[in-house]
């Protein structure tokens, strides 16, 4: 294998891993508060459409990303109202939000652009090479010649880790996810913490969606999230609910997805669909290999009612 092939493989691994990293990092914070939001798929697709429309309306990809974050947050708000505000089942609410998000974006897209979905071209979020760092052989261009959203992910990972494990707010968040009753007794406003953690997760998923539309495709397409929200939830478990490990887990999944290019370049003749299934099988194997029982927040997915 030549260095060029390896560099290309790493580049696509990072490119495919970044949207997962963004969404999974947000979901990590959400799950640490005791809420599993499988509706982030809906936030991602909303972020993709919101990001595209925002980029067109404001004439810039940067503002598009911000608008994508806002739409992702709005979808998570719907989830939060039902799952946290009303204490409805999180899995079922998440499913509804996913179905609704996919349907709503598809329908809106056709309202705005006609039934046949006139090709929607948006301002692209161009890769911005970081001088110096991007010149490092092999890994330089893979890691440091990406869209700005990738650098956002690199910065967010240690930042989220710091907030989660080194600040009072992070302690409250983790307490809410591990032992909500004790947290409440200690004066933590459990619902408020869960609400904000869920909205943060939605905003990050929205950014992931905007990244898909603006940095990858340069267009919105129906169902373009293609299950990435679900994969992000697996990535959270793979990353042991730790934002830094989650970043690497997302890149690992990206690498598994990019493997098809590498193996094809090396002359392996496997069916395309097997390559597509490979990252999921590998993730299952990785989960079986090193995620233990005690890893998930103890109160994950359990609705909680304030003690009156």
């Amino acid at each position: 294998m030549s260095q060029v092939e390896l560099a290309l493989f790493l580049e696509s691994a990072v490119r495919l891993g970044i949207p997962l990293a963004l969404a999974a990092m947000g979901e990590t914070i959400t799950e640490r508060s005791g809420v599993i939001n499988i509706g982030i798929e809906g936030s991602i697709i909303a972020g993709a459409l919101g990001g595209s429309l925002g980029a067109i309306a404001f004439g810039g990809a940067g503002l598009g990303v911000a608008f994508g974050a806002l739409t992702g947050l709005l979808v998570a708000f719907v989830f939060a109202v039902f799952a946290i505000g009303l204490g409805a089942d999180q899995i079922i609410t998440g499913t509804a939000v996913t179905i609704g998000g996919l349907g709503m974006t598809g329908a809106l897209y056709q309202v705005v652009f006609g039934v046949n979905g006139m090709e929607l071209s948006v301002p692209m979020l161009a890769p911005a090479a970081i001088p110096w760092l991007s010149d490092i052989p092999v890994i330089g261009s893979a890691l440091f010649a990406q869209a700005p959203t990738a650098y956002f992910a690199y910065v967010m990972a240690p930042l989220a880790w710091y907030v989660l494990f080194k600040t009072a707010w992070g302690l409250e968040l983790r307490a809410t996810g591990e032992a909500p009753v004790a947290a409440e007794a200690a004066g933590v406003r459990v619902r408020a913490v869960r609400f904000s953690a869920t909205l943060f997760g939605g905003a990050m998923a929205g950014i992931a969606g905007a990244h898909l539309a603006l940095a990858h495709a340069g267009a919105f397409a129906e169902n373009m999230s293609a299950g990435k929200g679900f994969i992000a939830i697996a990535v959270v478990a793979l990353g042991r609910w730790n934002p830094i490990i989650v970043l690497f887990a997302a890149l690992f999944f990206g690498g598994a997805s990019a493997l098809q290019f590498l193996l094809q370049a090396l002359g392996f003749d496997l069916a395309y669909q097997i390559f597509l299934a490979f990252p999921y099988i590998l993730t299952l194997a990785a989960l079986a290999g090193w995620v233990g029982k005690s890893q998930a927040p103890a109160a994950l997915a359990l609705p909680w009612e304030p003690n009156r």
């Binding site: 719907v78 039902f82 609410t93 499913t95 509804a96 179905i99 609704g100 349907g103 329908a107 056709q110």
Partner: peptide, 17 residues
């Protein structure tokens, strides 16, 4: 667009919940 039905589906679930 048939996508509207997914919206209705989601609304029905949320309403029942």
């Amino acid at each position: 667009p048939a996508a509207w039905v997914d919206v209705v589906e989601a609304l029905v679930i949320l309403a029942v919940l």
